[in-house]
Amino acid sequence: MDFLSTGPVQSSTVLILAHGAGAPMDSPFMNAVADGVATAAIRCVRFEFPYMAGRRHGGKKRPPDRQPVLLDHFQKVIQQISETAPKGASIYIGGKSMGGRMATLLAAQAVEKPLFQAVLCLGYPFHPPGKPEKTRTDHFPEISCPVLVCQGDRDPFGTRAEIENYALPSHVQFCWLPDGNHDLAPRVKSGYTKEENLAATIAAMVDFMEPDQPR
């Protein structure tokens, strides 16, 4: 498997971050997030699902793999990274959109103590755009570990107004990005900036993974 590792190799905190459905592991968004958490001495390891890796190596553009393939690959990545991480390291998993959803599904399926501590989602796809009745939250009650969701207020995959009416478990935390879209970026007229929302996202992620560290 090919990985992109950012941050100290011997860090005691490791974030395994999966990409979204349409962009690779080294998209500008993924690069910015990885670089941001690395400044807090957190090692961020990125990988690509088989369909995206195929595109990178000259294959034709394909849609995402079926869910069982995505989950199996993600689990293998977690196993491999956990075997090479420093002893006693805290491992977190997460991803952008689809990648974050796969991380929550793995957490929901864990029947024994998993290799990871918690899950981080960046723009979770709570429902398909324009179809708010088709929610993707049925598995959330099965998740026993903490979850952080960084979500734009106006994300078409789940707005703040919609999500605040969901009956989600109390250990699902939110970082709301003002006027943020699915990429967490606000509109120019809002008075907020993409850079501000990204900085707030990274700060929330770092605080979630290392809450006891002095800032």
Rank of each mutant, 00 (worst) to 15 (best):
F47M: 10
A107P: 10
V111Y: 04
V149E: 08
K87P: 00
M1K: 10
E162A: 02
F47T: 10
A23W: 03
N31E: 06
D153P: 07
H19E: 02
A21N: 10
R154K: 15
P68N: 00
N165I: 01
A32G: 09
I16Y: 02
R46V: 05
L106M: 13
N181M: 14
E162P: 03
C44R: 07
P129A: 07
F49P: 05
A204G: 04
Y166N: 08
M98I: 03
G100P: 09
A118E: 01
P8V: 00
P86W: 00
F116G: 02
V149I: 15
F29A: 13
T39L: 11
I143K: 10
V149D: 10
D2W: 02
M102Y: 06
Y192Q: 14
V119W: 04
R43I: 04
K76Y: 03
A38F: 03
Y192E: 06
S12M: 09
R55S: 03
V147D: 14
D179G: 05
K96P: 06
S170T: 11
Q213M: 08
L184W: 03
E112P: 06
F126Q: 02
C150Q: 12
V172G: 14
P169Q: 06
S12N: 10
D72M: 06
C150K: 12
P211Q: 12
E48Q: 15
F140N: 01
K134E: 04
M25D: 04
A204D: 09
A21K: 12
S190N: 03
T6E: 14
Q80L: 05
I81G: 11
V33E: 01
S27W: 06
P8M: 01
V111I: 13
V149R: 07
D26E: 06
A110C: 10
A34Q: 10
A18S: 10
L120M: 08
C44A: 12
S144F: 06
D183T: 09
D183G: 12
S5N: 08
S144K: 03
D183W: 05
C145H: 04
P86D: 01
H139L: 13
R66K: 15
P50H: 06
F29P: 13
